[in-house]
Amino acid sequence: MDSADLSTRLTSLDPAVGLRAVGALHRLAEQVEASSVARARAQGWSWEQIGDALGVSRQSVHAKHGK
């Protein structure tokens, strides 16, 4: 699908589907974050490097994902 197709599709999208998609994207983002942080730690990334990659502080990423 090219970007013109997608933008036509988004402007004609039923808001119920659009809002459900946003919820689904949040869930997907949380899950991709959880699995990626676990793999980054296993490969030796520091909390600071992971925080920088996610655009949040070392403390907040550690509070969320640290054991």
Partner: peptide, 16 residues
Amino acid sequence: ALTAVGVDARGVDRPP
């Protein structure tokens, strides 16, 4: 819903 916004997340690892 994801398909409707052009996102295909099939096969992605989705842990708790």
